[in-house]
Design a protein around this nucleic acid. Structure first.
Lengths: 165, 165
DNA sequence: ATATCTTATGTTATATCGTAACAGTCAAGA
DNA sequence: TCTTGACTGTTACGATATAACATAAGATAT
């Protein structure tokens, strides 16, 4: 685990990639074992695909990859694998993009916060306990019980902001 | 028209509805004037529809209403009107629901935070400056410049939580 | 006032995303 | 071994969204 994998991932900064991928996969295996759920071949492969791409991918894009490797080539194949990953906190769904991305720090309870560059499409997932906390405060005022949440921001990543000047 | 709110509500609490609708429309007119943008008939009507419904509505649902009143009945008619409203901060897009809802306090810069009841489907929009602030902090750490953001939480509204016990 | 430019509306056509429902498969326990 | 429940695969369809182009309505300049 070298550069930037621990902080803002799917990050804007370059970093050693093999490590964070292996790491996350190992943790995914461990978590599944622990929880008694099955990280089956399609599911694991779907996660690997997301990790390899290291960016947000549409379900059909993941499906294409899966199909090329002998798995089914109909939408439910991808959606089900991705749904499982999201349920287990191994991936996140980024609604603004109709896309999915591997979670870079699974296991830790966290409210995913995404920062999406509107120019280059890069997506960073940042830990955002403070965001979750703020949402909890607002929820309490409404008497609302939060079960899941996420926050998404659109804007310019450092690189594109630089280029724009 | 005081009690249309008890069903699917934009706020979980009951409240006088005629006032907030009229209020918001008046402010929408004023803001548009101020900004030199045109709140044309379709656009204004789309906003009224969202306000009347007082809940999140899909684009096709809005389209149906518009078409019934003599406006075009093809998707772009609704999508364009809604897009305008979102751009002007007069409505919000709730990605989790593929739906739109009128903004209940337009003009104020705010980060919309939505609380969506997974049982009854009601949606509350809460002011969430603290959420925005937390996102800004995280963004700064990444060198990311936020242009728009939103947060969505799924869970149980007070009524449904009560009923579930 | 009228020609011109810009913005908005409407339509056709199609792309993209997502799911319900059912059939076959496989692994694990009774 | 047989049943049971979870997983995979398929068909078929529904829902959501946009590109591209034609027409109409406002705004602007002369």
């Amino acid at each position: 685990m070298t550069q930037g994998c621990d902080n803002a991932v799917l990050a804007f900064a370059k970093h050693d990639h093999g490590h964070c991928t292996d790491d996350v996969l190992a943790r995914a295996d461990a978590l599944s074992e622990e929880r008694g759920v099955r990280l089956t071949p399609v599911r694991r492969r779907a996660l690997e695909i997301l990790l390899e791409a290291h960016r947000a991918m549409g379900a059909y894009e993941v499906l294409e990859r899966l199909a090329a490797e002998g798995y089914g080539n109909k939408p439910p194949v991808a959606y089900r694998a991705l749904e499982f990953l999201v349920e287990q906190g191994l991936a996140h769904r980024i609604r603004r993009l109709n896309a999915f991305a591997a979670c870079m720090h699974p296991g830790e309870t966290h409210a995913p916060a995404f920062f999406i560059c509107r120019t280059c499409g890069a997506v960073a997932e940042a830990p955002a306990e403070a965001v979750r906390a703020a949402m909890e405060v607002a929820a309490r005022a409404l008497g609302f019980a939060i079960e899941r949440m996420n926050a998404e921001a659109l804007g310019l990543c450092p690189g594109c902001a630089e280029a724009a000047r």
